[in-house]
């Protein structure tokens, strides 16, 4: 079963570009152009990942993210922003965003982030499965998963992109 991605952006070229890029990567991509449409789409169908612009008409900066996290906590959200400021990024991460992309981004950067997001989702599912199984056999596996989570991609170890 293909992973599903919802792309939310008011810029048509971005929507089309990301759909083409991610479809080619083997994902099932749906595109909408604002936050309200995104919420309606999410209510209709569950998505594994939402790639959303931070500032769009219709909803406040982080309200879409907060609503997604309330209604669909299992869905990962990657925010895209044209304002390259640390402050907004930190707020987004605190509100539950998986990661962020500063526009304009490279296609490779998008591919990596999306791939990492799905990988983490897979790991989380494994952890939950192991926890529910609760046999001593999986204790070592849980430790291993947690260790990978900690040593994986994280904000602190990532160098901030410098654009000067």
């Amino acid at each position: 079963m293909k992973q599903t991605i919802l792309v939310v952006d008011d810029e048509r070229s971005i929507r089309i570009g990301l759909k083409g890029l991610l479809t080619k990567e083997g994902y099932e991509v749906t595109i909408v152009e604002n936050g309200n449409e995104a919420l309606r789409e999410l209510a209709r169908q569950a998505y594994n990942l939402v790639l959303s612009d931070l500032r769009m008409a219709g909803l406040d900066e982080l309200s879409l993210l907060k609503k997604i996290k309330e209604q669909h906590p299992e869905t990962s959200v990657i925010l895209m922003t044209a304002y390259g400021s640390e402050k907004i990024a930190v707020e987004a991460m605190k509100a539950g965003a998986r990661d962020y992309l500063i526009k304009p981004f490279d296609n490779d950067e998008v591919k990596i982030l999306v791939h990492q997001a799905f990988e983490q989702q897979a790991l989380q599912r494994q952890v939950q499965h192991c926890m529910s199984d609760s046999t001593p056999h999986f204790v070592s596996k849980i430790s291993l998963v947690r260790a990978r989570q900690c040593s994986g991609y994280s904000m602190s170890s990532r160098e901030w992109p410098q654009r000067t």
Binding site: D10, E11, S13, I14, G17, L18, G20, P104, D106, N107
Partner: peptide
């Protein structure tokens, strides 16, 4: 700059994404 960033970076992103493909 804030306006320009939003108004310019968005179309640049789309164009760049498409051109890279």
């Amino acid at each position: 700059a804030a306006t320009v960033a939003h108004e310019i970076r968005n179309p640049i992103t789309g164009a760049k994404c498409l051109l890279q493909q």
